[in-house]
């Protein structure tokens, strides 16, 4: 198991290095970084000065090395447009995105898994068909459209919930949370639903497909022939076997929630990293784009590692692969 994790860590490092390289290439080769940093009236001498200070005259691999070194410490330089350190901007925006993503992920899992199980077991009932219809709407309705519709219904027509911003936030040291105030909680409802629906749909479909597959296997048939109850077959035997593939995809899905937050944040003017990123794309603010990229990749890599470790917990075949030798 240790060797497996070490191997995974090495692979993750490779992925991070590639992503860092892409981010570096963005920074270095898309447009002229110096021109982006200074105003129109900066003299040529000053520009050369800045070039030197930034190390842009060094060989490319040294620049990349420095870039990586800084990136590891969370330093991505100053934003071109806002003229402040990117790290500060990200840190300030991070709690908003994470709170939104977590709430949506919990929503998606808490609804998606039971709905998937239910539709796999009761394929023909009315409720099952209703769930399947919801899921189809979920994949066919673009996230931004869901947001717009929710705003129209609950914000414009009914005027129940706020349609933009985070509401009041409470500072807890370096973390600012919106989950402790009434207005903050109200503000997160619509964005969280918007962001969660698509993921919920995917999780539900995955659980359903896997569950149906497992219910067709021989050991379920043999269990039935031993007189085991449907309840035990479905929840004790089938569900556990469904979990392995579900964990993989769910891990990836939860990771992608953070990126999908870009759309939701933009619809609801939610002050998170996604909004920052989309504005950065519009303004060609490369340092922010680079930092965002690296951060997302990092979150993905961490989630993947967690998924791998979960495999060991769930699947005894992996745990004891070294000691077996059965065949």
């Amino acid at each position: 198991m240790i060797s497996f994790i070490v191997k995974r860590l090495l692979q993750s490092a490779l992925v991070m290095l590639s992503v860092a390289f892409i981010a570096f290439a963005l920074f270095r080769f898309v447009g002229d970084p110096v021109a982006n940093m200074v105003g129109q009236d900066t003299s040529t001498e000053e520009r050369i000065q800045i070039r030197k200070a930034l190390g842009l005259d060094d060989p490319v691999y040294i620049q990349f090395l420095n870039f990586t070194k800084n990136a590891v410490q969370g330093e991505f330089g100053n934003s071109f447009t806002l003229r402040v350190p990117v790290s500060g901007l990200m840190a300030q925006r991070f709690p908003a995105t994470l709170e939104l993503s977590l709430i949506s992920a919990i929503l998606a899992l808490a609804l998606g898994v039971p709905m998937g199980v239910y539709t796999a077991i009761h394929r023909k009932t009315l409720l099952s068909k209703a769930f399947m219809t919801i899921s189809l709407m979920g994949v066919s309705l673009p996230t931004f459209l869901i947001g717009i519709l929710l705003i129209l219904i609950f914000g414009v027509v009914l005027r129940w919930l706020p349609t933009f911003g985070r509401g009041d936030v409470v500072d807890l040291g370096w973390w600012s949370t919106g989950l402790l105030t009434a207005s903050g909680l109200k503000a997160i409802i619509l964005p969280a639903i918007t962001l969660g629906i698509f993921q919920m749909t995917l999780i539900m479909r995955l659980v359903r497909a896997e569950m149906m597959e497992v219910l067709r296997t021989d050991f379920i048939k043999f269990g039935r022939a031993r007189g085991l109850s449907d309840r035990s077959l479905q929840f004790r035997h089938a569900l556990k076997n469904t979990l392995i593939p579900v964990i993989t995809i769910t891990g990836l899905q939860v990771g992608s929630i953070i990126a999908f937050a870009i759309i939701t944040e933009s619809v609801f003017q939610w002050p998170g990293m996604g909004l920052l990123f989309i504005q950065a794309i519009g303004n060609a603010d490369i340092p922010i784009m680079a930092a965002y990229l690296v951060l997302i990749a990092f979150i993905f890599v961490v989630i993947n590692l967690v998924v791998d470790i979960l495999y060991f917990v769930v699947d005894p075949r992996l745990r004891s692969s070294s000691e077996s030798g059965s065949e």
Binding site: D218, F219, K221, F222, A225, K240
Partner: peptide
């Protein structure tokens, strides 16, 4: 049944 490899729940 025929196939002992698939007749048992692998996770228990």
């Amino acid at each position: 049944f025929q196939d002992p490899l698939t007749s048992l729940n692998p996770l228990e």
